[in-house]
Simulated scan of single mutants.
Amino acid sequence: MKKRFIALGVLFLSFGFVEANAQILSDKAMGALGKGVSGFTFSDADAAALAKKAIDEMDANNPVAGTNDGYSIRLNRLFGKHISSEGVALNYKVYLVKDINAFACADGSVRVFAGLMDIMDDNELLAVIGHEIGHVVNHDTRDAIKAAYKKEALLDVASSQSGKIETITQSQLGQLGSAMIDSKHSRKQESEADNFSYDFMKKNGYDVNAVESAFRILQNLSEGAEASFLTKMVSSHPDSGKRAEEAKKRAVKDGLYKAYIQQKIVNTAPVKATTTKKKVTTKKK
């Protein structure tokens, strides 16, 4: 895969999103949604069902770190205690790709890229995934799926009161995947997720200054060789510099601010100690 830097918060990425069948809302129901028919409700359960199918396809078609991989060991150490947050059941995996990103889905799936884990220490990584959890808890991921449906206009307005789950075609799933990639969170949603991340860090006794530090890292990346690509990706979001400043202001207000010093980053599996048996010899009498 060609290396590229991708802004945080993208729900589904273009790589590995192969065509497949998935159970989602019927054409009739989504026709109602697209036309604003009040009789249709896109529930959290609907969003989670679609997200589960999509993430299963992504997991099947991308390099997922195994349980004994150093990246998985590190992520499990950090987030094993946070498998449930605000009543949302979460599951974590690492994609062994160089892209710098993390994303969350409406079903509670959180996927972190090895490229991100290579440049952020434990506290910074906690801050980033806390942000992604915020998008799930705040229903932003559900709203993004809903917006993707409306944008793609995959559905027929006729007989729109049926809200059951049906099978869509492979080409429709491809269309939906592209729409979800383009469906970015609003500035308000990003700010609320940033606040959730800070509160998550504070509540769990982590260093809140890592929130600012994580955004500073992204800011530095956006000002580098990949700046034009990042600018396109985050055009509808608050820039990382401003978000870093907001996190710093909160830390100052709480009397917790101090310049953050990045800790050592270790993504390798611990080496198991090996013991060798000494050969016992007996002297002949």
Rank of each mutant, 00 (worst) to 15 (best):
K278L: 15
D99L: 11
S191Q: 06
Y95K: 09
T141W: 10
Q189F: 03
D122G: 05
A29Y: 11
L96Q: 08
A144L: 14
T281A: 15
G163Y: 01
A193H: 11
I73T: 06
H131C: 04
G115R: 00
K150E: 03
D207P: 06
F229Y: 08
S160T: 02
I133P: 02
K188Q: 11
A60S: 04
I119E: 07
Y71G: 06
D121F: 06
K284F: 00
A251V: 12
G108I: 00
L126T: 08
N21G: 13
K279R: 15
K203Q: 07
A144E: 00
K232F: 01
R187L: 02
N62I: 12
V10P: 11
G39S: 15
C105S: 08
D46G: 05
M233E: 12
D182L: 08
K164M: 15
G108M: 05
S235Y: 02
R142T: 03
A269W: 03
I181A: 12
G16V: 09
S222Q: 10
K278Q: 14
V280S: 09
A179H: 01
E246H: 13
F5M: 15
V94N: 01
S213A: 07
H185S: 14
K150L: 03
G163I: 08
D143K: 11
S213Y: 02
G130C: 07
K151W: 07
I181Y: 13
D56F: 07
E226L: 13
A106D: 02
I133H: 01
G31T: 05
T274H: 13
A269D: 05
K248H: 12
L75H: 01
K284H: 04
T231G: 15
S109T: 08
L11A: 13
E57I: 06
T169A: 04
S26M: 10
L155W: 12
G134T: 04
D156V: 06
F113E: 03
H82R: 01
N68Y: 10
P238H: 10
A60P: 10
E192F: 09
A49L: 09
Q161I: 03
L125R: 01
N76E: 03
K52M: 11
D143F: 12
K284M: 08
N209W: 00
D254V: 11
M201S: 12
Q161A: 11
K284T: 04
V64N: 00
I145Q: 02
F196I: 00
S84F: 03
A244R: 05
A7K: 07
V252S: 11
L230D: 05
S235T: 06
S84L: 03
V280N: 08
N62E: 13
H139C: 03
L230C: 09
L96R: 02
F12R: 13
L75R: 00
Y257W: 12
A179M: 07
K285E: 12
Y198T: 02
E57T: 11
E190A: 06
F113D: 03
Y92C: 06
M117S: 04
E190L: 08
Y198K: 07
V208C: 00
R74Q: 11
V252E: 05
E57K: 09
E86K: 06
